[in-house]
Nucleic acid binder design. Structure first.
Lengths: 191, 191
DNA sequence: TGTACATCAGTGAACGCGCGTTCACTGATGTAC
DNA sequence: TGTACATCAGTGAACGCGCGTTCACTGATGTAC
């Protein structure tokens, strides 16, 4: 059942998107390719018509989810003044809604351990994506380029730690407090 | 080859310790029980004489590594004045040495994603251990109980985020900067 | 204290399942004339 | 523009390996007398 070039490209995108959500939801190891293909509306056999290996789709899925986050951050920032734009991005990131929505949330928070242990294309996609995130945040900060980059690293790593531990903790009250404290400390830093 | 009660108990401890290091080094999913047992100096068949399942040893390994970290933090804090004790603990946590030593380092940084997705005994051991960590840090802070707990949550989650992202990033210079920025922001908060 | 038997920690083979990967096949698309 | 053939996306079965778990067996330890 051969498909047109456009249909093939769309299918490939659909697989990457499904993969990026499934990986974030359940982790790379616990997500089978059959599961990914089912989420994309296909059977598992066709996978290798689009990718050479699981590793390849993991790398693309990570790159894709970082791109999506970057785009939404840029939109969120552009609508307002630099300081307010960054604040609204941080508030959304450190919200209970984001904590709940692992599948569509920050890929660093969802896959940090996998990323840290990976090599090759996965590691490369991760590092490159993070560097672009840092740039987007740094561009909103009213300091010299070098100082803004350092501050952006601090803001970003704290945000990831907060959302991650908010997901680790079982008690909802403590989890909410973690997010609230992070907002309290980071929103002023973004002004 | 039956062993004495004491020898059996020591073997069990050896397995838990080996498991806690292997899990932190390579992740829970990527670590096989055969690998854990080999690290403990045995063959895999004997595992079920000590544990009912992999899940059980995971929960115990996490509890054990948290206990070890707690003990070392208490020792590090006790040696000096409250403020300085906490500062030295934070400095050690946010050091390149800790970043490199995943197998013996913070279990939250090494296994946060696994923890966040787990349920049952693993989740329980994690939540309980984190609560005790928060208490140890809060006890060092010169504020009211409630305020100290909130501040401890902020300090801890930021520390975890920093060491985690320092491991995710491929570039050593950026990784060092992440740790340096985190120290810069958190050491004053601990004074 | 000594003896006989039950217990059980550890070994290594085997089982069974899941999953990444491969493959023969189908039939619609792309291409050459 | 139409026709014939090559291409190839997708299907579903199958392969092979790794890994969690089980099991028969061994021989030292624990226990009852």
């Amino acid at each position: 059942v051969r498909k047109s070039r456009q249909a093939t490209a769309e299918t490939r995108e659909r697989i990457v998107k499904a993969a990026s959500e499934e990986f974030r939801r359940n982790g790379v190891e616990r997500t089978g390719l059959a599961e990914v293909m089912a989420a994309a509306g296909m059977t598992h056999g066709g996978f290798y018509k689009h990718f050479a290996s699981k590793e390849e789709v993991v790398a693309e899925a990570i790159a894709s989810s970082i791109d999506t986050m970057l785009a939404s951050w840029r939109d969120g920032s552009a609508a307002e003044t630099p300081g307010q734009g960054l604040q609204s991005v941080i508030s959304a990131y450190l919200s209970p809604a984001h904590r709940q929505d692992r599948a569509c949330g920050c890929p660093f928070a969802a896959l940090a351990n996998d990323m840290a242990r990976s090599e090759g294309p996965i590691r490369a996609a991760t590092t490159e994506g993070f560097a672009r995130l840092v740039d987007v945040v740094a561009a909103q900060l009213p300091m010299s380029r070098a100082a803004a980059r350092k501050e952006a690293l601090w803001i970003l790593t704290s945000m990831v730690g907060a959302i991650l531990m908010a997901r680790v903790v079982d008690d909802p009250a403590t989890s909410d407090t973690i997010l609230r404290e992070a907002r309290k400390h980071l929103l002023p830093a973004a002004a």
